[in-house]
Every structure is written in C-alpha cells, then in structure tokens.
Simulated scan of single mutants.
Amino acid sequence: MDGILPLWKPKGMTSHDCVIKVRKLFHSKKVGHTGTLDPEVEGVLPICIGQATKIVPFLTDTTKTYIAEVTLGKATDTEDAHGIIIEEKNVKTPLSKQNIENVLQLFRGEINQIPPMYSAVKVNGRKLYEYARANESVERPERTVTIHELEMLEMNDTIFTFKAVCSKGTYIRTLCVDIGKSLGYPAYMSDLIRISTGSIMDKDTVTFTTIENTPERGNLLLPISRGVDHLDVLEVDEQTKMKVKNGQKLGIPERVLQTEPFSVMYKNELLAIYRIHPEKKDCIKPVRVFN
C-alpha cells in the first residue's frame, strides 16, 4: 500500500503516536509523518506510507497554514497555554484591530526567529527542551523563516486570532510571543490549528475514527504525486520512462524547469524526482525513484 494519508491529527497525541497507530491500522512498517505538530495542536498531518516515505523531505519542505490564537497580558515558559506563567502585565487600554494590523505588517516576509527553549531544535547534540527541563541555559541559534501571508481574523478583548501561511521551520508560538512584544505586552499562543500542508487542505483529511470504520483503507490514500505537486514536472516518453525506472542519468531537458529538484512523469504516473547533476551540469540525476 503506497500513498499519503491526509490525517487530521487530534489533540492529545504526538505526531509519533500517530505514526505508530497508522502502522498498525495499515499493517505497514514504512510510515513517516511530514512535519511535527505539538501534542495539544490539532490539524493537517500528512502521513506517508510505503513508497510515499521517499517524498517525506519534499512534502515537509512545503508551506504550512495555521490559525493561531494569541492571549495578551501573560507569558509562559513554553510560549503556549501549557507552560508556567513567567510574566504578567495588565492590558489596560483595549487594542484596536488597526493597532494589531499595524504590527502584523512588521512580520510579513522574511523574519528572524529564535526557537523556543521547549522545542526539538538541537544545540550541541541535545534538544533544546532537554536543556529547559534540566534548567540549563544555552545560546539558541537564530533562524530566518518566511511569513508568506499574515491575516488578522477575530478579536475579543485581550485575545485575537490570525491566519499565517509560512515556510518550513516557523515556530508559531514564537511568532505569537514576538507579535505581543511589538504590541507592548507579554503574550502566549493559547490555541493552534494547522489547516494545510502544501496543497493538502483540512477538507482533504480523515480522522482516526473514519480510518477505523473503513474496510478498504487504501481508498483513503492520496497519490504520491500529490505530495510533490509544488515541484515542476518533466514529462517523458515511454522509452525514457524505462531509463528513469532504472535510475539512469539523462541529458539536460530542452525546457527550463522552474524548481530544483523536479518531478519526472510519464502520463499521470510519477516515476522519480530528479535534479541537475552537481558535478556534470550537462545531465540530470535521480534523487528518488519510485518502483
């Protein structure tokens, strides 16, 4: 069984918990998720099964869309609702939507983030949350991420929600905290939902209840090509198809491809993912080949 399971991850499970459960439900050892969601976050978690595990890094690298809720006036050590309050400040004057919109403009485009201490980012071979739990301090590496879209949705007193379309590696918790600081208040992320990963949307997803109640579970899987539809496509003929299936290098295509790497397809069949050869610029080589 090969394909992408568009899972709606429930609250209370880690992404790894979901992988373990999917392995049992689909009787497959080759299962991998495409971007960690914290246990108390729900939403779109595409899970690759069988041959689809070959595209995990490509699907993980796509943009993600979130609906986040920010609470002003308090900060927590984990930057979300499940941490210990470390700072408080009364919000005496209610903020207007225009106040918030003015600040959101500062966070559109490329921004720098310092990942939260309670995260899986590794420093000197240890995850940051391991330092945090041991009450040890460590310098955290700054990273550049891209906020493609940032839209104010609703506001109620000291709580507001926004939609963010962002690049891989963006910490929405940290985005919430930084927006709060720019508004002049401590803040934390009080709720988060992921509504898309790449082109896989919330409307495409299935729950564990649906999976358990579906006898023909293979029918719930999306084709592998859906996970790489953000890559440009090189169409080949039947003769070239066999070369691709055998993992052979090919000559540079006549058409300039817009992404690197790119998909190679025969009719509607995804054959492989190729890239320009790093040493031989006159040919292309396979990165992944699908049997």
Rank of each mutant, 00 (worst) to 15 (best):
Ser196His: 03
Ser196Phe: 01
Thr197Leu: 05
Gly198Cys: 04
Gly198Trp: 03
Ser199Trp: 01
Ser199Thr: 15
Ser199Ala: 14
Ile200Ala: 01
Ile200Thr: 02
Met201Leu: 14
Met201Ser: 13
Met201Tyr: 09
Lys203Thr: 13
Lys203Cys: 10
Lys203Ile: 12
Asp204Arg: 11
Thr207Pro: 00
Thr207Tyr: 09
Phe208Trp: 03
Phe208Pro: 04
Thr209Lys: 13
Thr210Lys: 15
Ile211Thr: 11
Glu212Phe: 02
Glu212Ile: 08
Asn213Phe: 03
Asn213Val: 09
Pro215His: 07
Glu216Thr: 02
Arg217Met: 09
Gly218Met: 12
Asn219Tyr: 02
Asn219Arg: 13
Asn219His: 11
Leu220Gln: 11
Leu220Met: 14
Leu221Gly: 02
Leu221Cys: 06
Leu221Pro: 01
Leu222Lys: 12
Pro223Gly: 06
Ile224Tyr: 00
Ser225Val: 07
Ser225Ala: 14
Arg226Lys: 15
Val228Glu: 01
Asp229Asn: 15
Asp229Thr: 11
His230Met: 11
Asp232Phe: 09
Val233Ile: 15
Val233His: 01
Glu235Pro: 03
Glu235Asp: 12
Val236Cys: 11
Asp237Thr: 07
Gln239Thr: 14
Gln239Gly: 03
Gln239Arg: 14
Thr240Tyr: 04
Lys241Leu: 03
Lys241Gln: 14
Met242Asn: 13
Met242Glu: 15
Met242Gln: 15
Lys243Asn: 14
Lys245Asp: 06
Lys245Ile: 09
Gly247Ala: 05
Gly247Pro: 06
Gln248Asp: 08
Lys249Ile: 00
Leu250Met: 12
Gly251Ser: 09
Gly251His: 07
Ile252Lys: 13
Ile252Cys: 04
Pro253Asp: 10
Pro253Tyr: 07
Pro253Ser: 06
Glu254Pro: 00
Glu254Gly: 05
Glu254Trp: 07
Arg255Thr: 11
Arg255Cys: 00
Arg255Val: 11
Val256Ala: 06
Val256Trp: 01
Val256Ser: 06
Val256Glu: 10
Val256Asp: 10
Leu257Met: 14
Thr259Tyr: 10
Glu260Pro: 07
Pro261Tyr: 05
Pro261Ile: 03
Pro261Arg: 08
Phe262Val: 02
Ser263Leu: 09
Ser263Pro: 10
Ser263Cys: 15
Val264Tyr: 01
Met265Glu: 06
Met265Lys: 12
Met265Gly: 00
Tyr266Ile: 01
Tyr266Asp: 03
Lys267Tyr: 10
Asn268Gln: 15
Asn268Glu: 15
Glu269Gln: 15
Glu269Arg: 13
Glu269Ser: 10
Leu270Cys: 06
Leu270Tyr: 03
Ile273Ala: 06
Tyr274Ser: 03
Tyr274Met: 12
Tyr274Gln: 06
His277Phe: 02
His277Val: 00
His277Asp: 15
His277Gln: 02
His277Pro: 00
Pro278Ser: 06
Pro278Tyr: 01
Lys280His: 11
Lys280Ile: 02
Lys281Phe: 10
Lys281Ile: 08
Lys281Met: 08
Asp282Pro: 00
Asp282Tyr: 06
Asp282Phe: 02
Asp282Arg: 08
Asp282Gly: 11
Asp282Leu: 04
Cys283His: 03
Ile284Thr: 05
Ile284Ser: 05
Lys285Pro: 00
Lys285Leu: 08
